[in-house]
Amino acid sequence: MSKHWARPVLGGLAALAVFELALGGLSYRDAIEDADWDAVSEAIEQDEPAAVRLATTWLGPRARMEVPQLAAPRSAAAPDLHGLETLTVVGLGESWSDALDRELEGQRRPSRISKEAFGPFEVGHYRFDGAPATLHSWLSNPPTLSTPQGVCRKKGSSWSCKEGSVNVAFAEVDYTPRRCFQFALSDNTPLTFEDTIPLGTSLRGHVGVTDFNGRLRSDAPIRVRTFIDDVSVGNFVVTDAQGWRPFSVKTEPGEHAVRVELTDTVRGTWGREGHNPGGRRKVCFELRVLGGGA
């Protein structure tokens, strides 16, 4: 290297340092004022919580603290983006994210109707053109739960069965909060959910396994069988490596008897030390009736 190279290289180091300083000036400060949170909260206070999402997921705790709509369980632990006609998205800088794309689960991205800026926040209003609406949810209107030993007794948001208990609660599946029926019954015990309900064009649900932190994702699968009017319409297994596994069944509109049977083939979890029959692992399940739309 000669003088002709050394001088530009020294200059380049200085330029890089100045560039980093400028970036540092932008990075090392708060970008959000309390008033920005207030403005966002006010802007979406009339929106239905189930149709509100946060695009910038890492802001979650503060966002839920400041914006009641984002703290609502139907927003903070929603199953997916299906069954919505409209959607309001709050984001830092932009009102969409890769995380929301994943929540679409194959559905087309909604079209944006409008957007507003509140300080560094962007609030986008979207419409799912022709998408079906949510007509019924088993989480809101629970069905009858039973095991081979009989019907489970309901008390509040939990059920007591002979082989264990079931409750509706928040759960972590694949590092994402969900709200679902949770249970850990004895090995190979089927848990049956059944109800006669007015159906739309499809049943949509999810099955997952909780507590991804504590496990290496090598556990026994869960068998899922779905019946409508006693006719089998779906039969598959879900492994814990599949995360929040969606499933959908096309239906004929009208009143029908729906039965979903979930069997955890072997409870507990496998780790470095072998099989642990206890632990926090539970099966997590939700189901909705979708209908209407184009």
Binding site: S27, Y28, R29, D30, A31, P61, R62, R64, M65, P68, A71, A72, P73, A76, A77, A169, F170, A171, E172, Y175, T176, P177, T210, D211, F212, N213, G214, R280
Partner: peptide, 23 residues
């Protein structure tokens, strides 16, 4: 996240009362 969800279930809310932030 597992533990945060546990706190949600325990306290019946998804909103913390205080958050310590860096930028």
């Amino acid at each position: 996240t597992t533990h945060e969800v546990d706190a949600w279930n325990r306290y019946g809310t998804t909103a913390p009362s205080t958050v310590l932030e860096l930028d």
